[in-house]
Design a protein around this nucleic acid. Structure first.
Length: 565
RNA sequence: UACCUCGUGGUGUAAUGGUAACACAGGAGAUUUUGAUUCUCUCAUUCAAGGUUCGAGUCCUUGCGAGGUAGCCA
């Protein structure tokens, strides 16, 4: 994992701050970060940015550093264990390790309760009997200050009693909340006596029914950080306004083992992608994709199934940088990082996505020869393989044009093209069915143009195409994935009330039956290949069966040839 | 029309008062039995206007623009 263990050449504003803390021996030079997902959905590429940051920081600052995985499970109405498992799997897959430091905010419920009692005793928290509607009305607006709750001046004793009875289950859901007593006139809405505990009659995936009051994120998060001696609490920009509250709690709660501070960075936005959990959930629930792990989804599980590699994603996260500017990153950059990785490591294979039969009329009927192909030109150690060639072959429909466009230098009637690593062929005749569809190309091959031969005085053949031998080729299902949306910014195009699904790309999935060289028989689910001249493909780990492989297109190869109109 | 944060090529980042650098995308070319890869070259005077300074992307002022914030969600 050398790619992400090393700090970038120049430091981003967060790393700069941390480096300064370390050299000032703040926290004895320790750096303790955390990745704190709520288990209410699957992780996506945006979370990968945070994971790479937090776990990356731990690696960069070793040995006096670590990163915790903490589930922020303070809202039992939204959380499920299946998400806990999926999140752990995703973090591991990305190549990170929390060691012994797996935590749950729910593990701190008792301590958090004690801290609330502490605040009440200090006159810094009170039980409010207002309805949610009243609270909202009294909170004021962005331009007008709020007004104090009639319950704001309750005595410590009464508050203590009421809070204990909230816990004991004496009140109905929503009947009372515990509020921090700060400043109803603050220009920061989060400081206008925020609710820190609410009554929720919900079964919690870890604590079961032992609690009926649950702490709010704003309350639980800083205190959980402190309990774990987190030094740097890093989150996204929308929590900027919560920072004063974070600091208020750290300053006012007594007996905290740590003094963390929070800093914020811009979340990741990608073109042609929606990233909000709500929208991703909608795609799943409405069956617009096959699930959270649909290869078109920006989820970690989807991207993994698409065939992206952990190294590619880590490199992507390093490349996008870390700032406070809410930028929009080109999806092409993600594609670039996976091509870069797969180009080095993927084995090459010949596959014909849209087969057209080619008959070599001057090739012996019964002959089968073995052609030696290079497994990976980027790595000689990957060796070579033998692939059969015979009289009847398949080439890709894209590699033949009856009426060639300008600049096309593959196979055309009367024209010559090279079958890669074999020999050149000339198309002598185009056979069509009654409907006018091409059924067969009758060609002749030239023995003098064998691989390695240097025929003198021949014009250089410009085109080189891949091929498979018809009789030995295997049929495989290939899923050609493309971007899920056809506009750069589906969110913006839809507006606040609009339906973003109207901008889905109707061609985001095309399924074809491809002809592929027989060496693929030994392929295992979860393997990366480059189909030469086509793209990178991944054997689908869910739907592939022995002898019946399914390939997902990870990304196309760059194509320098743009068909003339 | 409150408060907070942010404005550097098409995009994402760097430059920590001293030659605006890197990556992606685009363009041009070389190499290539993958129109891939690889390699060259090319593409911005930093939102605007003032100010401080020998010197400003960086500091100050004002303006403009963008994002965020009024859950008993996180």
């Amino acid at each position: 994992m050398s790619d992400s263990a090393s700090a970038p050449a120049s430091l981003d504003f967060i790393r700069e701050m941390i480096a300064a803390d370390v050299s000032a021996q703040r926290n004895d030079g320790w750096v303790i970060t955390r990745f704190p997902p709520e288990p209410n959905g699957c992780l996506h590429i945006g979370h990968a940015k945070s994971i790479c940051l937090n776990f990356g920081l731990a690696l960069e600052n070793a040995p006096n550093a670590r990163c915790h995985l903490r589930f922020d499970d303070t809202n039992p109405t939204k959380e499920e264990v299946e998400y806990v498992d999926s999140i752990k799997q995703d973090v591991k897959w990305l190549g990170f390790d929390w060691g012994d430091h797996l935590y749950y905010a729910s593990d701190y419920f008792e301590k958090l309760y004690g801290f609330a009692v502490n605040l009440i005793k200090k006159g810094l928290a009170y039980v409010d009997d207002q309805t949610p509607e009243q609270m909202r009305a009294n909170r004021g607006t962005l331009t007008a200050p709020g007004t104090a709750s009639p319950y704001r001046e309750r005595s410590v004793e009464e508050n203590l009693d009421l809070f204990a009875r909230m816990r004991a289950g004496e009140f109905k859901e929503g009947e009372r909340v515990l509020r921090a007593r700060i400043d109803m006139a603050s220009p920061n809405m989060n400081m206008r006596d925020p609710a820190i505990y609410r009554i929720l009659r919900a079964h919690h995936h870890r604590t079961g029914d032992s609690w009926c009051i649950y702490p709010m994120y704003d309350y639980a998060h800083p205190l959980s950080d402190a309990l774990e001696s987190i030094t740097h609490s890093l989150c996204t920009l929308e929590f900027e306004h919560h920072r004063p509250l974070y600091e208020w709690l750290i300053a006012n709660v007594d007996g905290l083992p740590g003094q963390p501070y929070q800093r914020e960075f811009a979340r990741l936005s990608l073109t042609y992608t929606v990233m909000s959990k709500r929208k991703l959930l909608r795609l799943v629930k409405d069956g617009l994709v096959s699930g959270w792990d649909d290869p078109r989804m920006p989820t970690i599980s989807g991207i993994r199934r698409r065939g992206y590699t952990p190294a590619a994603i880590r490199n992507f996260c390093k490349t996008i940088g870390l700032t406070k500017y809410p930028s929009l990153t080109d999806l092409g950059l993600l594609e670039h990082t996976v091509r870069e990785d797969l180009n080095q490591h993927a084995q090459r294979v010949y596959a014909v996505l849209r087969p057209v039969k080619v008959v070599l009329t001057n090739y012996p009927e019964d002959q089968i020869e073995q052609i030696e192909l290079v497994n990976n030109p980027e790595n000689e150690a990957d060796g070579k393989r033998l692939v059969p060639l015979s009289r009847e072959l398949y080439i890709d429909a894209d590699d033949f044009m009856e009426v060639p466009s300008q600049g096309f230098h593959r196979l055309v009637p009367g024209g010559e093209v090279r079958l890669k690593y074999a020999f050149c062929i000339i198309c002598q005749e185009v056979i069509k069915d009654a409907a006018g569809n091409i059924t067969e190309l009758r060609c002749t091959y030239d023995e003098a143009t064998r691989h390695g031969a240097k025929p003198v005085g021949r014009p250089k053949v410009k085109g080189t195409i891949h091929w498979v031998s018809a009789a030995q080729a295997m049929d495989v299902e290939v899923r050609l994935y493309d971007k899920l949306f056809s506009v750069e910014q589906p969110d913006e195009a839809a507006g606040d009330d609009g339906d973003f699904t109207q901008f889905m790309n109707p061609h985001s999935l095309e399924i074809v039956t491809a002809k592929i060289e027989p060496s693929i028989d030994s392929a295992k689910p979860g393997a990366h290949y480059q189909f030469e001249r086509v793209g990178y493909f991944f054997t689908d780990p869910v739907d592939s069966q022995p002898g019946r492989l399914v390939f997902n297109r990870t990304v196309q190869l760059k194509d320098g040839f743009v068909k003339a109109k």
